[in-house]
Design a protein around this nucleic acid. Structure first.
Length: 870
RNA sequence: GGGGGCAUAGCUCAGUUGGUUUAGAGCAUCUGCCUUACAAGCAGAGGGUCCGCGGUUCGAACCCGUGUGCCCCCA
């Protein structure tokens, strides 16, 4: 079979993905093996695959594929989130294109369009995950608005309400004027904005022409003012407390009150209080029983209550009122002022604090066990540094606003009668049953729906119908899940709440390990975003480099727990690695065709095989340990080095037969076995190419995807050390050749001066081949007219036709000597220190003494070599 | 304003309870090679005041204090 010059990923990937799915390798049903369960963080139905998903799902696939090879019964559940606000925005936009206004539709008509949209676009992202090779159990694809799921969300709402953990309350909320909905605190993005601070004077209600000056960044809100507040200890204003002032332009008379909330130093020290439009002012308003004047409509325009500028947008009004205030003589000055402004995560509208009647979850009681689970390490965070962040948030947790003024989502199961009473139940019939007085009355269901996260927090158990069908065989087998892989940005939105829901409804934590990925940023460290246009087209990259290369690239650049700076060059590195694997395969296929079945395996090949076996085993152990502790990137680096350097650059060269010479069958077969073991180690990271080569090497009885990975055995340290010595000698002598400008093609003669020939004799053939030596001999004295190189206690003399540059040889030796002497000094300093000798552990002392002896011996070797140079 | 994190080679990062050769890797750089698997490659090399200062210790990249700079979350 003729293999292509370079590895071509496209068709190979399609072929193997289909093969894996057709053979049902990704489908799981409960059996007597141990479960390894992962639920995908459900991407939004509006989503298309981006670099964040790529990283996140590659990590999950690595863990799941690894578990599969280790003999677990892995189950990775795919699915999507209905993403109420994001999807509704998309649907509204789609309707706008068809010139349909949402307001012209009934709720049911609108939902019809929304489902149409979902069916058409909602599955795109799942298709894209197939391209990446993700071994998801497609038969379990879930959606947060599936019938059973919907039912469970309602069930949880009713249950929490009955337990008194859900309540309805008028509170200050974040209002998105564009989407016309409340937002949770987490959906508000705070950005630093260069704005202005306006100093305004209010005329005092005392005889004479006296004013009090306040500072505000939102002059349009003065129309809702109901007091002015100063610090009780502020001597400038003490005499005014209890008096009144007039709001400019509308001349409303408001009291001047004192509270130590006010910062004396800030602005003028006098604060206007607008309870309807500022979180802190609202609190003050409650404390002093101030009037609440809501001057804003739900679309951000000013309301009747404002008295002026009715129907104009608040941002516009800011400009107009500034002019009017100036004209009226109330504007004292305007200064530049940089401050934090909240923006809607979804619509980017400036968020307005607004008073509103909403549904809330009382978080205090739910949070306590969830905090405990993490602090006690019942749930482990990787990296652990996120524990602090989690604790801090959970200890100061605030109630959760769960109602959203949207249609796409789970509709709040509360019904209102015409007198304004409300009843919470699973459906209207239940309301009638529980409250007979409502029978025959007109009931209206709450128009709002629930925050998306109020459904996603049930994800780890409801994908197994843990709540809609309690105690079923699947939930009992798969729950708690094993590992959750997610972004740290949603630790509060999602992770914390899943832990709460898991404890509340399953009585068990939802997962044992949480792996937090970094955020994917661009080369300059900026977050990937649509507006910056720095988000690469993932499918394009897969087409260009292959899925394995993309997976490799993103993983190799992804230090555990740190953000990763995405750079296409790592994909190139991945592609090159593919090619390296491919070329090694080509070499083996060449050897396969020309084998020597006669005689014993040559000694040098035997040494190489023993060495590589030891190297492989010890690296497998290292990788096992790294994966256990979620150091995935390091594990990949280690495997990469093992394959590229140890296997390809060293081992294959050591066993390589001479030109057109056959390879011994025993060596060939062992080498294929090694290669297959390497492929298996790499498979979770790069599944496609490894499966392809696995089958290219020879006829296999099973697919690599499901081949059991057997734990490794003991490592032969002696042979490992012998190999390291050989590598060291080869590198040192190649360096000497280079520095003395001996052409690669020119053979040399090597004379070794050593007290112990044996180690060199074992590796002699390999050594000769690797440094292009025509002859290797042993000597007990210096060889004249040679290049001398000192290594440890041994000396190497290179004889060649090339003229010897004694000066540079000497320079190298002197450099080495200086280094060794410096080293000796630092070791001697320790050993001469009585306190060190007394206090250090015996093994540390022994190491230091050996270091000193070794250094002395090396110095002697170098000095002798220098003496020979004259 | 409150809280959290980070600072090691040009870049991205390792560096386990303080002692394993006066700090390691990958990428990038430089030098030499079209060597019969691979130039998407091979061989070799150079490159660091472990952010500054102080302390603890026989011994500090690592522990403590402090300063500086960057990032994130919350108000």
């Amino acid at each position: 079979m003729e293999l292509s010059k370079n590895y071509i990923p496209g068709e190979v990937e399609i072929k193997w993905y289909k093969h894996w799915v057709d053979n049902g390798y990704f489908h799981s049903t409960p059996n007597d093996k141990k479960a390894y369960t992962v639920v995908i963080p459900p991407p939004n139905v509006t989503g298309v695959l981006h670099m964040g998903h790529c990283l996140n799902n590659t990590i999950q696939d690595i863990l799941v594929r690894r578990a599969r090879m280790q003999g677990f019964n892995p189950c990775w559940v795919p699915g999507t989130d209905h993403a109420s606000i994001a999807t509704e925005a998309k649907v509204v936009a789609m309707l706008r294109e068809r010139v349909i206004a949402k307001s012209s539709l009934t709720r049911d008509e609108f939902l019809g369009y929304a489902w149409e949209w979902k069916e058409k676009y909602g599955g795109i992202i799942l298709q894209q995950l197939r391209k990446m090779g993700c071994s998801l159990d497609w038969e379990r694809t879930s959606f947060t608005m599936d019938a059973d799921y919907y039912e469970s969300v309602i069930k949880v709402f009713v249950d929490l309400y009955k337990k008194g953990k859900i309540y309805r309350g008028k509170r200050m909320i974040n209002w998105d004027v564009r989407a016309k909905t409340a937002l949770s605190d987490e959906e508000v993005i705070h950005k630093e904005v260069a704005g202005k601070i306006y100093h305004l004077r209010y005329k005092l209600d005392i005889p004479g022409d006296e004013y009090i000056t306040i500072a505000t960044v939102r002059p349009e809100t003065i129309l809702g003012d109901s007091a002015i507040c100063v610090h009780p200890k502020d001597d400038r204003y003490k005499h005014l407390v209890g008096k009144f002032a007039f709001v400019p332009l509308i001349n409303r008379r408001i009291p001047i009150i004192a509270d130590d909330y006010v910062e004396i130093e800030f602005g003028t020290g006098a604060l206007k209080v607008t309870p309807a439009h500022d979180m802190n002012d609202f609190v003050l308003g409650q404390k002093y029983n101030l009037e609440v004047i809501d001057t804003m409509n739900d679309d951000g325009t000013l309301s009747e209550a404002a008295g002026l500028y009715i129907g104009q947008d608040r941002i516009e009004v800011r400009k107009i009122i500034t002019k009017d205030l100036d004209a009226a003589g109330n504007l004292v000055k305007i200064e530049d002022y940089t401050h934090q402004v909240g923006f809607s995560e979804r619509t980017d509208a400036i968020v307005e604090p607004r008073l509103s009647l909403q549904w809330w979850v009382d978080m205090k009681k739910l949070a306590a066990p969830a905090l405990e689970a993490v602090m006690s390490d019942e749930i482990s965070f990787h990296p652990a540094k996120f524990k602090n962040l989690y604790r801090h948030w959970m200890e100061g947790i605030k109630d959760w606003c769960i109602s959203r003024q949207l249609w796409w989502g789970h509709r709040i199961p509360a019904w209102y009668d015409e007198e304004g009473n409300f009843y919470v139940a699973h459906n209207e019939a239940e309301v009638n049953a529980n409250h007979p007085e409502t029978k025959g009355k007109k009931l209206t269901q709450d128009a709002d729906c629930l925050d998306t996260w109020f459904s996603s927090w049930l994800w780890p158990f409801e994908v197994f119908k843990g709540l809609s069908n309690p105690n079923n065989a699947e939930i009992n087998y798969y729950y708690p899940t094993s590992t959750l892989v997610t972004a740290p940005e949603i630790i509060f939105f999602w992770v914390a709440r899943m832990i709460m829901a898991g404890e509340e409804y399953m009585g068990k934590i939802p997962f044992k390990d949480v792996y937090f990925t970094g955020i994917v940023r661009d080369k300059q460290g900026r977050k990937m975003s649509k507006s910056l246009g720095n988000s690469p087209d993932l499918l394009g990259l897969i087409d260009q480099y292959g899925a394995d290369a993309v997976r490799f690239g993103i993983m190799i650049a992804s230090p555990a727990g740190n953000d990763l700076l995405f750079d296409e060059s790592t994909l190139e590195q991945g592609r090159n690695f593919n090619n390296k694997l491919w070329n090694a395969t080509k070499l083996l296929k060449m050897w396969e065709a020309r084998q020597n079945k006669e005689g014993e395996i040559p000694e040098d090949a035997k040494f190489a095989m023993d060495w590589f076996q030891a190297k492989l085993t010890s690296t497998q152990n290292e990788v096992d340990e790294m994966l256990k502790t979620f150091r995935l990137s390091e594990a990949l680096k280690t495997i990469y080095g093992l394959i590229w350097d140890d296997f390809c650059s060293w081992y294959l060269e050591w066993i390589k037969p001479g030109f057109e010479q056959p390879i011994h069958q025993g060596v060939y077969e062992k080498t294929v076995e090694f290669y297959d073991a390497l492929l298996q180690l790499l498979h979770p990271f790069m599944p496609f190419i490894t499966e392809e080569i696995h089958h290219t090497l020879k006829t296999q009885t099973e697919d690599l995807c499901v081949k059991l990975y057997t734990p490794t055995s003991k490592v032969d340290d002696a042979v490992l050390n012998a190999g390291a010595l050989l590598q060291n000698v080869i590198s040192t002598l190649r360096d000497a050749r280079n520095k003395n400008q001996i052409k690669p093609k020119d053979a040399i003669e090597l004379h070794i001066q050593t007290l112990n020939n044996a180690p060199y004799q074992t590796i002699q053939k390999i050594l000769a081949k690797q440094i292009n030596a025509s002859d290797i001999q042993y000597t007990s004295s210096a060889i004249s007219a040679s290049i001398v190189v000192a290594l440890e206690k041994d000396k190497f003399y290179i004889v060649s036709d090339q003229a010897i540059d004694t000066a540079s040889l000497k320079e190298n030796l002197l450099k080495d000597l200086a280094h060794q002497q410096g080293f000796l000094m630092s070791v001697s300093k320790k050993l001469d220190n009585e306190k060190f000798v007394q206090n250090a552990k015996p093994e540390v002392l022994a190491i230091e003494q050996k270091k000193k002896a070794d250094a002395l011996a090396r110095i002697q070797t170098i000095e002798e070599s220098l003496a020979q140079l004259g």
